[in-house]
Design a protein around this nucleic acid. Structure first.
Length: 1040
RNA sequence: GCGGAUGUGGCGUAAUUGGUAGCCGCGCCAGACUUAGGAUCUGGUUCCGUAAGGAGUAUGGGUUCGAGUCCCUUCAUCCGCACCA
């Protein structure tokens, strides 16, 4: 019987669906295992072969764990809110829900064909009111919470209100936007509005004026991770900085926990590093400097308190609020000019001009608290308002940016750290700063002689003693902007009373997204929701018109999967206690600073509320690599270039007995080819052009006594294609002085574009690469007919072919590894491959390609190999025998059991596929058809190729699903051997193999080796110095 | 600039703790069967050499009986971050 994958796959996909084979429920008799794929956004383009890579890996893992006796939660759903559907809505008026639904159906169809074991009963969509009810609910909890730094967790805001009314801010240690100070009396005297405003300083979801990334083209603000190089990640539109009232999440309150939590996670170091970097913890000191002759001071943050004696100037960010106060009358105009200029620069300009030094002196001086030195205070945009205090103490000797600034404005430089064991030198001679993290302090009074580390600690002590500074930790992480001026997102359950936001009642949730007439901002620039009719509460208060960002819905989705249909709570305690958190999370590394940080934050908050039982959502994570495309390239001939080149090749080799010069210039004229000796001009061009110039050129030639030959490119091309010699003959005659007409009128070249095969010599000189659809290229050979049909302009394409080994004319394409994308015509669609080879082949091949985490190109040919393997595998099962298996057969099987177990556990799927191939090759060679081998083998391959496994399982007489079987037990006794084929090396170089019993003693081994006939040659004339014998590994004889 | 990762045949890769470098597959070569092959099967395939043999895991060095693997150097490619004080 043939391996009919089409029929088999359809049959079993239906069987699994009808029998709900992949449905899971809480089962306290089994250990749980939670395998999750990163939430996909269903884009209109559908899946290409890169997308299912991670899904196949997680599917294999889930199926394997199930065979191992785990109760496996393996759900899938959709991150259904997103910009593309909304952009499309703006352009076409189609409701984004319609577009999204369509895309989801397409995704689902594609996924179903691959045979995943998702429990689709648990599907969630972020745009479903039953789902976003809980997104809104969580937002309200955030709104009604603050973060207590002492107990290191979120607490209800009512607790804070209580505290403030009793003690004011006295002794308060909570996360806030800026430290406030008031008494209980003052608090109690505040109006409700004032109190609400004050609470915004503490809420975990709060409304504030902030500098945001405003994207005018998209009409919305973007989060930091949605902006790259000053452009929006989606769409690539310019982004500017703008101050707006926005909702924010106080993720910074969790900075330390987000950082510490990384230590407990089984993630790659590189992702952890990206997150550490993003959180950007730095420990240093805040120091207050007095301003000379004024009764004010200002605060700087530094990680290098030890270098305080090396401070020669101060720098404030252009946005710093004390600039006005500090600017002297004489400097006012200059400072104002500079600040205006700096503020108006776009993010992009700033980023591209990082190296340019600019700044202005305020006219004021700070005072060094230890030696009274007056230090000039400058303003420069190399200091950022958003980090630390927006002011720095500059130590040019030991900071490269300060150094550049000091050199540019001729400010003094004082060395305060010397390299260990070296004397200080004159900084005037330096070409760069010495950014010393290690060294010994000099020129620093009481710090002299201390190491950098000691000096930092000592200085902080001194600062604290004087009450002008203290040790401080700073984070780079910013609060997450949570408002989007968009339609397609979760509405905020917030209404406004007296312009102050209030939380809606929880039992009003979900607050459903209203329908509107158009999806763009209003004429007055308000968000699209402002178009909604009656967008007010029952009491008539206006409802918030912003919507939530993409990461709102995707931050807690893994929890909802545990109990997806619960309308009374986010998820039940029972479900959460059973499923806990994700054991294996598979997805791309590109979410490192977005989703993966937001959802950790979201989870920690829910943990604080007592909802989530685990502090971290994703225990182990694997980031799959990208599948790159392999683009095909046809070289398109530049007609004039190639014809000139072809002629030049003949001329320069002097084959016509004359010396020609290429591109010869005479006065204002330029000849393609010129022979000064005989005054011959050869010009090559299109017929039309030649006709135009023929007359004046003829005159010119006559005047100078030259002879002229005008060669139309059409003639040369005809020679190429038809293998004729017309042009060559004409040139020869011309050179030999025969009477050749300068121009023979003829047809203009009217053929289509000309392409030239890859391996023809020198094609880089006269052709330009053009990307070709990979579907019309097989094994780098272009299908010429399909190519001509591909596009209208190629209908008349001509080809200069090369010959293959059999002498057939073929057109060979070049190739290039790059991103898989529609525009590069290199997209492999999984549907096509499933149709051609079946899902099992696709699954195996995607895994076989290489390590999951590595990026690798998609080789369109390679899939044949796994297809052949499955056919070979299928053949093993043609007649099943109940005879007992032989020792060799058992060995082969158990080798595979061990390999598969070990390799799946370490996420090495490619090597397992390879092990399957080895085993099947061995069994085929042994002509094995034993049930005792083939039954366990079918179970073992089922995670990888579930359809063929299920079919063969049933063919062997079973009525239950292969999915519900147990993975075979490895029995080491099947693989023990009593002899070993030792590689015998002399001086570390392997010379021959020798089979020896495993229990042989070293002396006997040595004897056996020395007496082996092959050894003789290597022992002649030398003596044995040493024998290295490692049982079951190697024998190495050291001779000399 | 800082941080991370990766460099092995024509290509994707393998070599779990230092122990036979190149498993498995693609491609290629030869053969078989075929009216035919982008079908199937068999054999071969790191490079140089007829062979014996030699060289060989980006580069140069080191440790070791033995290094793709450990240490140092340099180079290349990719990714992330970037006036972060």
């Amino acid at each position: 019987m043939e391996y009919n994958f089409e029929e088999i796959e359809k049959k079993w996909q239906e069987y699994w669906r009808e029998n709900k084979i992949y449905h899971v429920d809480i089962d306290h008799n089994k250990p749980k295992f939670y395998v999750l794929d990163m939430f996909p956004y269903p884009s209109g383009a559908g899946l290409h072969v890169g997308h299912p890579l991670g899904y196949i890996a997680s599917d294999i893992y889930a199926r394997y764990k199930r065979l191992k006796g785990f109760n496996v939660l393996h759900p899938m759903g959709y991150d259904a809110y997103g910009l593309p559907a909304e952009q499309y809505a703006i352009q076409t008026g189609t409701h984004p829900a319609v577009t999204t639904e369509k895309n989801i159906n397409r995704y689902r169809e594609q996924m179903d064909k691959i045979g995943f074991c998702y429990d689709w009963d648990r599907e969630v969509r972020t745009s479903d009111p039953h789902y976003y009810k809980w997104t809104q609910w969580t937002f309200l909890q955030l709104f009604n919470s603050f973060y207590c730094n002492k107990c290191k967790k979120a607490q209800p805001i009512s607790q804070l209100v209580d505290y403030l009314s009793k003690q004011g801010t006295e002794g308060l240690d909570v996360a806030c936007t800026k430290p406030l100070s008031f008494t209980a009396k003052e608090w109690n005297a505040m109006s409700e509005r004032e109190q609400q405003e004050t609470l915004m300083n503490y809420r975990l979801a709060y409304l504030a004026d902030t500098m945001v990334n405003w994207c005018p083209e998209l009409g919305t603000v973007l989060a930091n991770d949605e902006v790259q190089d000053g452009l929006s990640v989606r769409g690539g539109f310019p982004v500017i900085r703008k101050s707006m009232k926005q909702w924010l999440l106080r993720i910074t309150a969790y900075a330390e926990r987000l950082l510490q939590g990384l230590e407990t996670l089984d993630w790659t170091e590189s992702i952890k590093d990206v997150q550490r970097n993003w959180i950007g913890k730095s420990m240093g000191a805040s120091v207050f400097f007095k301003v000379a002759d004024k009764d004010i001071d200002f605060e700087v943050f530094t990680t290098r308190a030890d270098t305080l004696f090396g401070v020669t100037f101060m720098v404030l960010a252009p946005e710093h609020e004390m600039i006005k106060e500090l600017t002297t009358a004489a400097q006012r105009a200059a400072v104002e000019d500079y600040v205006t200029w700096a503020k108006n620069r776009s993010e992009r300009e700033r980023m591209s001009e990082v190296k340019k030094v600019s700044g202005v002196f305020t006219g004021s001086y700070a005072v060094n608290p230890f030696n009274g030195t007056k230090i000039p205070i400058w303003v420069s945009d190399y200091v950022l308002m958003g980090y630390g205090t927006g002011a720095i103490m500059a130590v040019p000797a030991h900071d490269s940016r300060d150094f550049a600034f000091a050199r540019h404005f001729n400010l003094p430089i004082i060395q305060v750290v010397a390299k260990p064991g070296e004397e200080p030198s004159d900084p005037a001679t330096w070409t760069e700063s010495f950014d010393a993290k290690e060294g010994v302090l000099v020129n620093s009074e009481f710090l002299n002689g201390l190491t950098v580390k000691q000096a930092i600690l000592h200085m902080i002590e001194e600062l604290e003693k004087l009450g002008i500074g203290k040790g401080k930790t700073n984070y780079r992480l910013r609060d997450a902007i949570f408002s989007r001026q968009r339609y397609w997102g979760e509405p905020f359950p917030i209404y406004y009373k007296d312009g102050m936001p209030y939380a809606m009642d929880v039992n009003k949730l979900p607050l459903e997204l209203p329908s509107i007439d158009a999806y763009k901002p209003t004429e007055t620039g308000e968000p699209p929701l402002a178009r909604a009719k009656n967008w007010v509460t029952e009491e008539g208060y206006p409802i918030e018109t912003n919507t939530m960002p993409g990461f709102a819905g995707s931050s807690g989705y893994y929890l909802r999967y545990m109990d997806p249909h619960n309308d009374n709570e986010y998820f039940s305690r029972e479900a959460n206690n059973y499923w806990q958190n994700v054991d294996l999370y598979i997805g791309g590394a590109e979410h490192a600073t977005g989703h993966l940080i937001y959802s950790r934050f979201w989870n920690k908050f829910l943990f604080d509320l007592g909802l989530a039982c685990k502090d971290e959502p994703f225990q182990k994570m694997v980031n799959q690599g990208m599948i790159q495309g392999r683009s095909s390239i046809a070289y398109r001939v530049n007609l004039e270039k190639i014809c000139e080149y072809a002629v030049w090749k003949r001329l320069k080799e002097n084959k016509l007995g004359l010396t020609f010069v290429r591109d010869y210039k005479e006065g204002r004229r330029r000849f393609d080819f010129f022979c000064p000796e005989k005054g011959l001009i050869i010009e090559i061009n299109r017929m039309g052009n030649l006709e135009k110039v023929a007359e004046p050129w003829r005159q010119y030639a006559d005047e100078h006594g030259y002879r002229l030959l005008l060669v139309p490119i059409v003639d040369i091309i005809n020679d190429f294609e038809q293998g004729t010699d017309y042009v060559r003959q004409r040139m020869r005659d011309f050179c030999m002085g025969k009477d050749v007409p300068a121009l023979i009128q003829g047809e203009e070249y009217s053929g289509g574009p000309v392409f030239v095969s890859k391996n023809l010599p020198d094609i880089e000189q006269f052709s330009d690469p053009m990307l070709v659809d990979i579907n019309i290229v097989h094994n780098d050979i272009l299908d010429i007919h399909a190519f001509r049909d591909w596009r209208d302009d190629l209908k008349n394409a001509r080809f200069i072919c090369e010959k293959d080994k059999d002498g057939n004319k073929v057109f060979v394409c070049d190739w290039l590894i790059e991103k898989m994308s529609k525009s590069k015509f290199n997209v492999q669609n999984p549907d096509d491959l499933v149709a051609k080879y079946g899902a099992d082949t696709l699954r195996l091949y995607e895994m076989f390609l290489g390590p999951l985490e590595q990026s690798k190109p998609w080789d369109t040919q390679g899939i044949e190999g796994t297809f052949r393997f499955l056919k070979k595998f299928w053949k093993l099962y043609s007649e099943i025998s109940d005879e007992p298996a032989t020792k060799e057969e058992m060995r082969s099987l158990h080798k595979l059991i061990k390999k598969e177990e070990e390799d799946i556990e370490r996420i090495s799927f490619n090597t397992v596929v390879s092990a399957f191939m080895i085993c099947v090759n061995e069994l085929t060679d042994m002509k094995c058809n034993k049930r005792a081998i083939l039954e366990p083998l079918a179970i073992m391959i089922s995670p990888y190729a579930p359809h063929i496994a299920e079919e063969l399982w049933h063919q062997m007489g079973h009525n239950d699903s292969v999915v519900n079987q147990r993975f075979p037990e490895f029995d080491a006794s099947n693989v023990v051997e009593n002899t070993f084929l030792y590689p015998v090396s002399f001086n570390g170089k392997k010379r021959f193999d020798l089979e020896l019993p495993l229990d042989m003693k070293q002396d006997d081994v040595q004897n056996a080796v020395v007496n082996a006939p092959e050894a003789k040659k290597w022992l002649e004339g030398v003596s044995i110095r040493k024998v290295i014998f490692i049982p079951k590994k190697i024998i190495n004889i050291v001779v000399g």
